[in-house]
Amino acid sequence: MINRVVKNVEEALKDIKDGNTLMVGGFGLCGIPENCIAELVKKGVKNLTCISNNAGVDNFGLGLLLQTKQIKKMIASYVGENDEFERQMLSGELEVELVPQGTLATRCMAAGYGMPVIFTPAGVGTEVAIGKETRKFTFNGEEKEYLMEKAFEADFAIVKAWKGDTAGNLVFNSTARNFNPLMAMAGRITIAEVEELVPAGELDPDHIHTPGIYVHRIFQGQKYEKRIEQRTVRKK
């Protein structure tokens, strides 16, 4: 078995450089690679392009990298929880490409499946379609216009899983799965931090969400905060 384990987060991110494009897993603050984000802040790499569904909140998640102005361009679908993001975007300091959520997911998927483009109806007739090729297809008995969208290309994909083994196989927990397995497949180099790292053989092969072939580096994360964005509860 090929061993994918690296010692720690420093070693995992050692060759990330200024100007790199990073995919960062998670939906909201759910399933984000907390250890890697903290290390990126510490490293101080700049001019990053980040592909992530959201941009964190002001003082957590990718919001930390916005505060330190390490992100040059953000590619995301929803950024409404972050005031600093909105400020940097409206002032023109931050370059932003807003992408429909399904398109974002599928552009990651396409990269992982080795397909250069996808066609989707999302965004046809809107400003998302400006400058993009459209084509008409008859599908499911209906003729419709579709927009051509390109697979993402990222130097690194940084994901977070619940469990992983030394062969790099990953299992996600509940809705912390979200974009993580898609981005894991899509990075030129994929780095996975996990809550629990186990020896190869301990995870049931039938229960693996991401096969280790996609995961180049894996390490056991530390001190997960797992912040909740909207705590909504009922009284007993």
Binding site: L29, W162, T175, K226, I228, Q230, T232, V233, K235
Partner: peptide
């Protein structure tokens, strides 16, 4: 929504609510 104390950071909806 979950009962108080039973919420999980890993289980949210599209509105980011537990």
């Amino acid at each position: 929504f979950p009962f108080e104390g039973e919420e999980s950071a890993d289980l949210i909806n599209a509105g980011k609510q537990t």
